[in-house]
Computed example of a mutant assay.
Amino acid sequence: MTKPMETEARFEQSDGKLHVESQLPETKAKQGRSGRRVLTVLVAALVLAFIVWIPVEIWGDKKGEQMQPSAPADTQVPTAPPSSAPQTPAEADAQQR
């Protein structure tokens, strides 16, 4: 059962005019039915995104493994000899000369 539209007139001080407002019943004010179609579209889009995403992730992992350079086993990284105390910049400069 729907109620008839109710109208209300009120004076607005900000613009000095009389405004008429109408109150709509809840059933008329709704924009549409339940969002079943919208939900279906959103779920379908999410499923399609995952269908595309999974192969891309697998392809990216394989491509990343191929691109990683393998360091030869006999290559040694030079290391600095350990010092007993921290050096000041002046001491480090004197050692280099």
Rank of each mutant, 00 (worst) to 15 (best):
P82G: 10
R97F: 14
G35D: 06
E65C: 03
A71Q: 05
Q76T: 09
P25N: 14
D74L: 01
T79Q: 10
E91D: 07
K63W: 08
P78G: 01
D15C: 09
S22A: 15
M5H: 13
K28S: 15
Q68C: 06
E57A: 14
V47I: 13
D15F: 05
E65H: 05
V20I: 15
E57I: 11
Q13T: 15
K62Y: 07
L18H: 05
E8N: 11
S84I: 14
L18W: 09
E21F: 14
A49M: 09
Q68G: 04
Q23Y: 12
W53F: 14
V77Y: 04
T40H: 08
E21S: 13
K28A: 15
V56T: 06
A94W: 07
E8M: 12
K17P: 00
K62V: 07
D15Q: 05
E21W: 12
E65G: 05
Q68W: 04
P89K: 12
Q87V: 14
I54Y: 08
Q96D: 14
Q13K: 14
H19F: 06
R97D: 09
I51S: 01
L42H: 07
L18M: 11
P69A: 01
E26C: 08
D74G: 00
W53D: 04
T40C: 08
R97T: 15
D93I: 15
V52G: 05
I51C: 02
P89V: 11
T27Y: 06
I51D: 02
V47R: 02
A80F: 07
P25S: 15
F50Y: 06
S14H: 07
E21C: 10
L39N: 08
P69N: 00
V77P: 00
S34K: 08
R36L: 13
K30P: 00
Q13D: 15
A94Q: 11
P86G: 01
A92G: 13
P82Q: 12
K30V: 10
A80I: 07
K28I: 14
D61Y: 10
G16H: 01
V20H: 06
F50N: 08
F11D: 06
G32F: 05
E12T: 13
K30F: 02
P81S: 01
P55R: 00
R33S: 15
I51P: 00
L42A: 10
A44E: 01
D15Y: 03
S34F: 09
P72M: 03
S34T: 12
S83V: 13
V41F: 04
D74M: 00
P78W: 02
M67Y: 02
A85E: 13
A92M: 14
P89Y: 07
T75K: 09
P89S: 11
Q31M: 14
I58E: 04
S84Q: 13
R33T: 14
I58R: 04
